[in-house]
């Protein structure tokens, strides 16, 4: 993706600057940008190392198992097809817990495992099942309890209160997730009706 987006950005902005004369601005911006990338990375390093360490503690305790049990009713509502398949349910809920805690590195492999298990149960191998569709959309609209990257960005820019966005983020992300879930439920009904007609 970036192999397309990045050259487009470079080409349009550099040629615009050359023809419409913002070259001084552009030149100083090039070096300012590399500097702010480094500044952000140093802040990211602190925040991400701290958070990763804390989450490593969490993953060695039984917290994740406990949270997984807590999610059971939610999973039953979201994935009615999987009511009887506790193995897939467990994989899905572990992925959800990892996402919520912001363990991106752990969440993706768990999620892919759940996808493969669902594919084994899939009768139409080239088409997503209802559960798979719901699972992917939930992953694209995942709730994250501490948005570490944004906090690091805000910190590197000298915000007076880098964590002040946490509560608004929860509200926005819950609304997004609910909208995604409703959209999937509606679209499942529409597409399955179409299929029956055929």
């Amino acid at each position: 993706m970036l192999n397309i987006v990045w050259p487009i950005f470079i080409i349009i902005s550099f040629s615009y600057a050359i023809f419409f004369g913002n070259l001084n601005n552009l030149n100083s911006e090039i070096f300012a940008s590399t500097e702010s990338a480094i500044k952000l990375s140093i802040n990211l390093l602190g925040t991400i190392c701290l958070w990763n360490g804390i989450m490593q503690i969490a993953s060695k305790t039984s917290i994740i198992d406990k949270l997984t049990k807590f999610l059971k009713p939610v999973i039953n509502f979201l994935f009615p097809e999987l009511r009887k398949n506790s193995k897939i349910q467990k994989e899905i809920s572990m992925n959800m817990v990892a996402n919520i805690l912001g363990l991106g590195n752990a969440a993706t492999p768990l999620g892919l495992k759940a996808m493969k298990s669902m594919q084994e149960e899939n009768k139409q191998k080239d088409r997503l099942t209802d559960s798979m569709a719901m699972f992917i959309v939930i992953n694209t609209a995942s709730i994250q309890i501490i948005p570490t990257t944004v906090i690091a960005i805000r910190n590197s820019l000298g915000s007076e209160n880098p964590t002040s966005i946490i509560f608004p983020v929860w509200i926005a992300t819950i609304c997004a997730a609910v909208a995604g879930i409703i959209a999937v439920k509606i679209l499942i009904n529409i597409t399955n009706k179409d299929k029956e007609k055929k």
């Binding site: 090039i30 300012a32 590399t34």
Partner: peptide
Amino acid sequence: IGLFVAIGALRSSG
């Protein structure tokens, strides 16, 4: 680094 330069260029070029 690559993207910061590209985005910075988009803005500073006008």
